[in-house]
């Protein structure tokens, strides 16, 4: 079971504060490696808060925790806090105006049994 979603990134003060103190802490990973999903998408995926999901597109893939938003319905649209995790899914080819399409992530989301992607794993991939 998987769903194709648009992902929009945003800024969160608690996660930012944590990242200022350390990019390598467990706290920063727990606050960053999260995807916020609509109730309906949570149900289609058969996941509940805290369950792990694999988020994958043509750029890369990551495992993060799923969380339901309390926002008004937005099925098909997911949110992630700006971080090294969300950036793994980001294209860097440019539009006509020569900026990357930060807000235009499209990815397939599916339940996963794996652990949340560690920052060390991401660093390895960047250096590979």
């Amino acid at each position: 079971m998987s769903v194709e979603l648009k992902i929009v990134c945003f800024e969160d003060i608690f996660q930012y504060e944590s990242g200022e103190k350390s990019r390598f802490s467990d706290e920063y990973r727990q606050l960053s490696a999260v995807i916020l999903l609509d109730k309906q998408d949570m149900a289609s995926l058969g996941v509940k808060d805290g369950d792990k999901v694999l988020v994958e597109n043509e750029i890369s893939k990551i495992v993060v925790a799923a969380k339901t938003t309390d926002d008004e319905p937005h099925a098909g649209l997911a949110f992630m806090i700006n971080s090294v995790w969300s950036n793994q899914l980001l294209r860097d080819d440019l539009c006509n105006a020569s900026v990357p399409r930060f807000k235009g992530i499209t990815a397939r989301v599916a339940p996963s049994q794996e652990e949340v992607t560690q920052i060390s794993e991401i660093v390895q991939r960047l250096r590979a």
């Binding site: 350390s22 750029i59 090294v84 950036n87 294209r91 660093v123 991939r125």
Partner: peptide
């Protein structure tokens, strides 16, 4: 490496870098 998209971060990770920063 943390703030830019995967492709750009990866390209930077493959060249010699000099980093001037107060923290890790």
């Amino acid at each position: 490496l943390s703030a830019l998209p995967f492709g750009t971060a990866r390209a930077l990770a493959h060249i010699p870098l000099i980093a001037i920063d107060p923290r890790r």
